[in-house]
Each structure stands twice: as structure tokens, then as C-alpha cells.
Amino acid sequence: MSHVTKINLTDTRPSHWPERLIKALLLASSLVAVLVTVGIVFSLLFEAVRFFKIIPIQAFLFGLEWNPQTAIRADQIGAKGEFGAVPLITGTLLISTIAMFVATPLGLASSIYLAEYAGPRTRAIVKPLLELLAGIPTVVYGFFAALMIAPLIRLTGTSLGLEVASESALAAGLAMGVMIVPLISSLSDDAINAVPQSLRDASYGLGATQAETIKKVVLPAALPGIAGGLLLATSTAIGETMIVVMAAGLAANITANPLEAVTTITVQIVTLLTGDQEFDSAKTLSAFALGLLLFTLTLLLNIAAQKIVNHYRERYD
């Protein structure tokens, strides 16, 4: 009878618990991201619900007056203050629209030039410069907008006989627009580069000029990606805080005139929560209701943007 050495396939190494522990740790880390989302939603909801107990939700969403006051005496006139968010929403939209009007043509045209025309050397210089534009903190844009752009617009406006507020929506919108250019440019660049070269070849082969090829073949094919990028950019504009805090005003006007002063959701959140406040007043709680509104708005835009971009990716993969 011969002896056959059996190979032991059961694990003989020292106990496995550290590996399990590490794996659990890894899983827990990835759950932190989920936890943060849950934390955001719940903390905003919790405080917002307390706010809506004082101010009814429809008065908040559809009210046309924003004048948050905390009563010094209980019997004071207008003691409760007005918490209609409509002027803030329209103000936010006005400034974001101006920003998108600036950023879309600039970002799109520069990405088209970089992707389709520029040689490698131009790209090597221009791309980092555009990235620099994206890397500059927004507080710097805000400072520049308040210090240089707003007075310049006012000067130009008054010399043309127009009435311009010293903190016009236009100044904040312009600075914000430039800030968003690199975002639009890099996302459109990705979308344009994802268009297969064979489509361009087909168009050139028919005798189309490069501009015709871009306008009629490349851009339509890249449109979903570009649209997704524009949605993301809009979401960034809506959530941007420092530029508007420094360059837009506190005046809650409902207007479509870019030369007037408007205020935004983010400006009001900052104003309500900096400075002295007692924590449970309607004024303080309203900041969380505004935060919830902001979060919902941007989340919807982000989800829509991702849906569009993912759908589009599948088409060429």
C-alpha cells in the first residue's frame, strides 16, 4: 500500500477574521456616500418641516413677497415676516439665465475649436488656461464682479441713459457665466470627441466644408452629451453662492430686467444664517426650506443630465 500525500484544499492559514474586518471596513466606507445623501435629505427635511409648521408650504412656494423678519415684540406689525420664495426663485433663474447666455456660446465655440480645429500645441496651451479659469475660487469671481464688472456696467448703462442698479443681476450673471465656461467646454469636448470619425469622413467625402460637417453632422450627433453638459452647468449656476453673495444684492425683486438688482436662494441662505440669530425662529428655519428647494432643483437637473449622457453613451459604445 503506497502512501499518497493528500493535498489539503481547506485553508490552513491563520484565521481569516482580519480579512473580513477589512472587507466590512471597505463596504462601510462606500456607504458613507449614501449616508451623506441621507443626512442631507433628512436634515433639510427635518428643519424645513418645522418651518412649514410656522409658514404654510404654499405660502412659501407661491408667495410673492420675501421679507424675513423676526419680531422684536410679538404684537409688531408684520411680526411674522413674509416668506414667499417666488422672488428668490425668479432672481436665481434670472442670474442663471444670464450666466448660461454668456457661457453657452463661449464654452461651445471654444470646445468646437479645440476639438476640431486646434493643433496639439494650441490645445496644450489653451486647455490648461481654461482649466485655470475653472480652478479659481468663486470668491475671487465675486470680488472681481463687485469691484470691476458692476461699476463698469453701471457706468456704461448710465452713459447710455439707462437706470442701472449698483448690484445688477447682469454683473453677477456675467462673472458666473465666465466661471461656467470651462465646465461647458470640457463636457462638450467629451461629447464631440465621442462622435465617431467615420461620420466626419463621410461628410468630408461628400465635399462638405469642415464648418458644415461640424454644424450638420458632429453637433447633432453630440447634442445629447452637450445638452447633458448644459443641464449640469445650469445646476452649478443655480447652486453657486459666493459670486451672488458678493455681487448680487439682497433686494427681493421680481423682474426680468438684468440691470435691476435681484437676490437668489443662495444669497438668502447665507444672509439668514450668518450674523446673529436664534435657532428656532422662522427666519432661521426658512434657510433650511430654501436649502431643500435648492437641493431638489439641482438634484432634478443632475439626474436629468446623467440620464441624457448615459443614454447617449450607450448609442456609440
Partner: peptide, 18 residues
């Protein structure tokens, strides 16, 4: 532009526009 209008090309893989 004019040259390619007179000399057309068909490629290896079909590449219809979307």
C-alpha cells in the same frame, strides 16, 4: 470641397449619419 463633390467616396464600414 469641389473636388470631393466630383470624386465621391464609400468607406469600408457603412457610416450613415444618425
Amino acid at each position: 470641397v469641389s473636388l470631393r463633390a466630383h470624386v465621391g467616396i464609400v468607406f469600408q464600414r457603412p457610416n450613415p449619419f444618425p
